[in-house]
Design a protein around this nucleic acid. Structure first.
Length: 350
DNA sequence: GACCCGTGGTA
DNA sequence: TTACCAAGGGT
């Protein structure tokens, strides 16, 4: 067991990917550790999200809020706007809750142990282990999609996910070394991301190829097995775009719970098989030729766009007018950004 | 365990 | 174009 983890660490010493939040293996071996705040921020952003998508957001957040105390003191709307486009917006809401809990309950310092980290909002089993291992070099075992795949192949596990998780966790734990656990955690994930990939794994250049039971059995490309997913339905809806004569846009902050919770958006109907009209004010609505299409995790959405212009004395039943100069489309979640772009492309007042 | 929750890249 | 997939967490 120890042999395999050492092979992986030697591979990582040469092939570690460079990331803005990462301390390279040479520096860690010399005793350097990363800022726990930056590691926590990166791990939350990386939940179900690719490294490529995270890089710029991480830099932006570190520039706007360099410490956990800065983030804890930020306005909710500013954080949600900065997160716009990254998805899974409950992460941003929990990010703020967590930062404020660290300041209020832990003296503004991230706790180093797994069990205490686990009590914080937005930190689950994976992120608690990742922060403990990467930021504090604790011998915790991370189990993410990469590690699941590497373990399933290394030991030729055919039990489908997610039922296989306990088994894969036990295998991953047995492989975790006491030396350099932080580098080891990152090494397994780098291996999964670059060599032991979901499709067409590069077994020929894998540092664990001689030990890999799935490679020997020829089953690596079909592992890990997964229980089939349900088909995603199509839902429809109506988006109402209102432009006031002075250029202001009618927007609303969505309910903090549920889909796109806490994010800015245009007023709209429900999203369902048979959406009911729900205009935010009385007006002569014009239908846009184009339809906004967007796919969420569990359904496809087709949005009909109705637009209108209203005078300065208009009083909407829902939402609020945002002056043209205060409005930034980048603060919108992607589906609302698509609506905005279609309106801007089709109408003279874009 | 089941379900909800975004987005962009890739084949 | 469709379907899968990515450093998961909350309920």
């Amino acid at each position: 067991m120890r042999e395999r983890s050492l092979q992986l660490l030697e591979w990582y010493d040469v092939h570690a990917r460079s990331m803005p939040w990462r301390v390279p293996p040479a520096d860690r071996k010399a005793g350097a550790l990363p800022d726990p705040y930056g590691i926590w921020l990166s791990e939350v952003m990386l939940q179900q999200t690719t490294v490529a998508a995270v890089r710029d957001y991480w830099r932006k957040f570190m520039g706007l809020w360099p410490t956990v105390a800065d983030l804890a003191a930020a306005q909710d709307a500013d954080v949600m706007a900065a997160w716009a486009g990254l998805g899974y917006y409950a992460r941003a809401r929990n990010l703020l809750k967590c930062a404020r809990a660290v300041v209020a309950d832990h003296g503004g310092v991230f706790p180093p142990d797994h069990d205490t980290l686990l009590t914080l909002p937005g930190i689950g089993p994976y992120t608690a282990a990742a922060v403990a291992a990467i930021a504090f070099d604790q011998p915790e075992t991370v189990l993410d999609g990469n590690v699941e795949r590497v373990m399933a192949r290394l030991y030729d596990v055919h039990t489908p996910l997610p039922a296989a998780k306990p088994e894969l966790m036990a295998l991953a734990k047995a492989l975790t070394p006491q030396e350099r656990p932080g580098d080891y955690a990152q090494a397994v994930m780098d291996l999964g991301a670059t060599i032991c990939t979901p499709k067409s794994p590069a077994c020929g250049i894998c540092p664990l190829r001689d030990d890999c039971m799935a490679r020997i059995a020829g089953t690596a490309p079909v592992l890990p097995k997964k229980t089939p997913k349900k088909p995603v339905p199509v839902r429809r809806g109506i988006a109402y775009v209102v432009r006031r004569d002075d250029g202001a846009w009618l927007l609303e902050t969505r309910d903090p719970k549920g889909l796109l919770g806490g994010m800015l958006g245009f007023a709209g109907s429900d999203w369902s098989d048979d959406p009911q009209p729900a205009p935010p004010l009385d007006a002569e609505w014009q239908q846009l030729d184009a339809t906004a299409r967007h796919t969420f995790t569990h359904f496809h959405l087709e949005l009909t766009i109705l637009w209108t212009r209203v005078p300065g004395n208009a009083r909407p039943a829902r939402g609020h007018f945002v002056p043209h100069n205060d409005f930034s489309p980048t603060a919108l979640p992607t589906v609302m950004r698509k609506v905005f772009d279609l309106v801007a492309d089709s109408l003279p007042f874009g």
